[in-house]
């Protein structure tokens, strides 16, 4: 508008630029801003916005097709809270996620410890144990179904050799979930192996050598050096496997179809069915945010309890 104001601008700009550069050197936040900008843009557009949009959808009754949606307020959430099927799914999902996470973490670390050595053939082992991660689920589903077959399957064959009568795994409501947990562990262990192998690279060998000179046993080395030093990786794996476990869907698709008697009707499958088989996209969105809230809560607990302890343990060991 008026000339003086226009003239006032350049110096202001330059001071702010100077100030910015000074701030850039003095504080962390300007660098953090630069580091986080690309991530913020992409997450904002392709994660946060669609997520908020589907929160909005959770207040509607919508079949996913119809151009008309009916606003129902909190009805979908009310239905969900009163749905026995939903809470059953929550329990079943906890069962799967905690079982598969725990077993695959232990197995992954054990394998990584064994294979992070000069053991002969370690490259071949590393590749073979990684195969489940790249094996397509359809192939895995077929093979595991056969392995679990109560009459011809290898698993019950081995059990009967030990004098135990094996269950009708995938068709028995009590055993279908343990079977899925085993398959989930089978697949996840190779994945965890990779992360633990990477983590073990950061553990200085000199620690082990010093401890060995002090006469520590192999178990002591593992317990007092390896476990605490890979704690940040363990926290990462515990959180991500739980998140994956909570959303697991493909194993159910290829092996059990949610049965028998909903014994494997996990939340991922419950949500998929409601969204794409029952045409209840509004309700499915509400389910999604219930899942989100549950995972968030569990993660927060892990973060606060395990995370803090893990970082303390790491610092003490290091």
């Amino acid at each position: 508008m008026s000339p003086p104001k226009a003239l006032a601008h350049p110096p202001l700009l330059s001071t702010s630029l100077q100030g910015f550069l000074v701030a850039f050197e003095r504080h962390d936040w300007p660098s953090a801003f630069v580091c986080l900008l690309p991530v913020a843009l992409i997450f904002g557009l392709f994660n946060i916005y669609p997520a908020l949009y589907s929160v909005f959808l959770s207040f509607f009754r919508w079949d996913g097709f119809n151009l008309q949606r009916e606003f129902v307020g909190l009805d979908n959430y009310r239905t969900l809270v009163h749905s026995g099927a939903f809470w059953h799914s929550v329990l079943v999902t906890f069962y799967y996620a905690s079982g598969a996470t725990l077993l695959s973490l232990v197995l992954g670390l054990a394998l990584a410890t064994a294979l992070n050595s000069n053991l002969a053939g370690r490259t071949i082992y590393r590749t073979l144990y990684f195969l489940p991660v790249v094996t397509p689920m359809v192939a895995a589903g077929v093979v595991w179904q056969r392995l679990f077959d109560p009459t011809h399957g290898v698993i019950n064959g081995a059990l009967s050799w030990l004098g135990v009568t094996g269950p009708n795994w995938l068709s028995d409501p009590a055993w279908a979930m343990p079977a899925l947990i085993l398959v989930g562990t089978w697949r996840r262990a190779g994945f965890n192996l990779v992360v633990y192998l990477a983590a073990l690279q950061a553990v200085p060998r000199i620690y082990y050598e010093a401890a060995r000179l002090d006469g520590a046993s192999a178990w002591a080395l593992f317990r007092f050096i390896t476990v605490p030093l890979v704690a940040p990786a363990s926290l990462f794996l515990a959180i991500t496997s739980l998140i994956d476990g909570f959303q697991m869907l493909d194993l159910v698709f290829v092996m059990t179809n949610g049965g028998p008697l909903d014994a494997t009707n996990v939340l991922g499958f419950y949500l998929y069915q409601n969204a794409f088989r029952f045409f209840k996209l509004g309700y499915a969105s509400a389910v999604a945010y219930a899942i989100f809230a549950l995972i968030f809560l569990v993660t927060l607990v892990q973060w606060r309890l395990v995370g803090r302890r893990a970082e303390v343990a790491y610092q003490e060991a290091a």
Binding site: D63, G64, F65, N66, L67, Q68, F279
Partner: peptide, 8 residues
């Protein structure tokens, strides 16, 4: 049944 009601 769902498609024919969709309006599409």
């Amino acid at each position: 049944a769902a498609l024919k009601r969709s309006g599409g």
